[in-house]
Design a protein around this nucleic acid. Structure first.
Lengths: 171, 171
DNA sequence: GACGATACGGAACGCGCGCCCCGGTTGGCA
DNA sequence: TGCCAACCGGGGCGCGCGTTCCGTATCGTC
């Protein structure tokens, strides 16, 4: 790859990181190109589609979150809650976290799998309500993450959800 | 108003009721007109904008819900929870309930006010956590209602939120 | 320093959708 | 029944945005 091609690719990624984070997936692609000091055509030379660019930007962060999910491996409920908290903290600052679930089927599947594992263990331990499915959790989180950018208090929202997830058997 | 004008107006409302309910606010207006057996121009003769049509369709249902909020006036927590349950039940079947909060500022304000009253009384009684605001609740509900149309189990979602809202003082 | 391949920029296309306009039609009153 | 006002249908406009195309500029090698 040519030298300035690599440089431009990085400029596009940088601009996309910032704009997706502040405005979500809905930023016009031309705006990203503009902020990168580049034409729209250049963006498409490096990423086949807007979705691909978005995924390139978010994938790293999501993967990192999932990779760190195995801390607290001794306390399953704590492990799940820590993961959800991490998601919420990220989403409170970056608007693209919630869009990732909608826009990229890949990322959605990754999250679904990770949450499924954590959830399953916590449910076996009996500390999280047994009638919640991984899909319920993914979708509920998506709704909550979106809500954080509309005037609600992120911390309170998270606490409500976490408390609601507790098993009734063990209050 | 002329006779067939009234008839067409009703046909438009009927088509809009069905399509907004199944597909949400995002149905193309031409599709509504088509289902009503009418041209798009006719729709605009009766409603100045797509939003206005949407509001005409949803306003009735929302107002009815709010009007019935004063049952259970003796138990504030029960009153609030009954109202939220009613919202959830409606949203589980009709997709436009969640859009109403986003699309129509009027309906959003109505809901905000109604929820604010119910919430305030429940908080004074000490049975609902005191750090939740009416805005938090509106936005949280919006997220939850949307989640119901994406494969989650509505009943479980509602239970989680209701449990999460309980005051820690009184489990 | 010249030449071919590679990459760039931005004008332009296609599409979907909200909304408007106008020639034709229909309803109801005299 | 005839006439005028009210109303209808649907073609069309404007806009935003994702995507593509191509003439031009730039890189890197010989």
């Amino acid at each position: 790859m040519r030298a300035d091609a690599a440089r431009n690719r990085e400029k596009v990624l940088e601009a996309a990181r910032e704009l997706f984070a502040t405005q979500g997936f809905d930023v016009p692609l031309d705006e990203i190109a503009g902020k990168a000091g580049v034409g729209p055509g250049t963006v498409y030379r490096h990423f086949p589609t807007k979705q691909a660019l978005f995924q390139a930007v978010t994938e790293t962060r999501v993967s990192a979150m999932i990779a760190s999910a195995d801390e607290h491996a001794d306390d399953p409920r704590q492990a799940l809650f820590a993961f959800l908290t991490k998601m919420a903290d990220e989403a409170a600052v970056k608007r693209d976290m919630s869009d990732a679930i909608t826009v990229s089927p890949d990322l959605r599947k990754s999250l679904h799998k990770a949450l499924g594992g954590l959830l399953h263990r916590a449910q076996e331990a009996g500390t999280v309500r047994a009638d919640v499915t991984a899909t319920d959790l993914v979708v509920l989180m998506k709704g909550m993450l979106q809500s954080m950018h509309e005037g609600a208090n992120p911390a309170v929202l998270l606490e409500i959800v976490l408390k609601g997830l507790q098993s009734s058997r063990k209050p």
